[in-house]
């Protein structure tokens, strides 16, 4: 077996993952915190004011990274759900279900900040345009996944049922992303583009990218912390879990 595949198999084993995540966590939390502070300072203080929205545009540094994360985490959850359904890997089930509440939180932040931004600029808290509606559907999908997971007694069966819902819901992701292109919406089109020049000044762009990276790290740290607890609970009674519990008692 080639070494990469071997490492992948090892990663799938709960005790190995538990220890690896434990070693990574302080770094992830630390880097996430530094990134968030740097990004927010850059965005709220260093970046120049916009020519027409002046300082009100600064909410972009919370709104847009949250929106990106709401979609990124959903894709992550669905991919893990797919692996969980086909290969029945326990770690994937745990990761998919641990990601759902984090994704729901980012989606809620995105909707809330969007609403706060929309009132002064557009003139309304909410409108049923395609972008806003599909993002709201994304929140409901997250809530559905979380609800379904908790409605079934058996943890592994529950995560597979919820993973299936998550997987079906992935059709909403392209709708969220392309809604501003396909339909006439109140929400404007994409500013930051993966291909081609972005429609934002460089001095305003870098804090946004720092925030995008910092929110990814925050997600990773939060995910690993949650997954560790879930794994320990799922594997309670196994030898490695007993050892972890005993070691915890001693320290």
């Amino acid at each position: 077996m080639n070494p990469l595949l071997l490492w992948f198999h090892k990663l799938g084993s709960p005790p190995y993952f538990y220890r690896l995540a434990g070693r990574l966590l302080p770094w992830l939390w630390g880097l996430a915190l530094i990134g968030l502070v740097a990004g927010l300072y850059g965005g709220l203080v260093l970046a120049p004011a916009d020519y027409q929205q002046s300082d009100a545009f600064r909410i972009i540094y919370v709104h847009v990274p949250s929106a990106w994360m709401s979609m990124f985490i959903y894709a992550f959850m669905a991919a893990n759900g797919f692996v969980a359904l086909v290969w029945r890997i326990k770690l994937s089930e745990t990761l998919a279900m641990a990601a759902a509440p984090i994704g729901a939180a980012f989606t809620a932040i995105c909707l809330a900040t969007g609403s706060i931004w929309g009132k002064p600029m557009w003139g309304t808290w909410w409108t049923w345009d395609a972008r806003l509606t599909s993002e709201l559907v994304l929140l409901f999908l997250y809530l559905g996944v979380i609800g379904l997971y908790h409605a079934i007694e058996d943890r592994r069966q529950a995560s597979r049922a919820a993973a299936f819902l998550a997987l079906i819901g992935i059709v909403n992701l392209p709708i969220v992303h392309f809604s501003v292109k396909w339909w006439n919406t109140l929400h404007q089109g994409s500013t930051v583009k993966l291909f081609g020049p972005s429609l934002i000044d460089g001095r305003m762009l870098w804090p946004l990218l720092v925030m995008a990276l910092a929110t990814k790290l925050l997600f990773a740290a939060s995910l690993l912390s949650r997954a560790r607890v879930d794994l320990l609970e799922l594997e309670a009674g196994k030898e490695w879990a007993r050892q972890v519990a005993l070691a915890g008692e001693r320290t």
């Binding site: 916009d50 020519y51 929205q53 600029m121 109140l186 934002i200 000044d201």
Partner: peptide
């Protein structure tokens, strides 16, 4: 009965705009 302003996707600092 309601008028909403649409924002575009451009963000430009004031000095550059001027």
């Amino acid at each position: 009965s309601e008028v909403l302003a649409k924002h575009d996707e451009n963000y430009v600092p004031r000095d550059v705009a001027e």
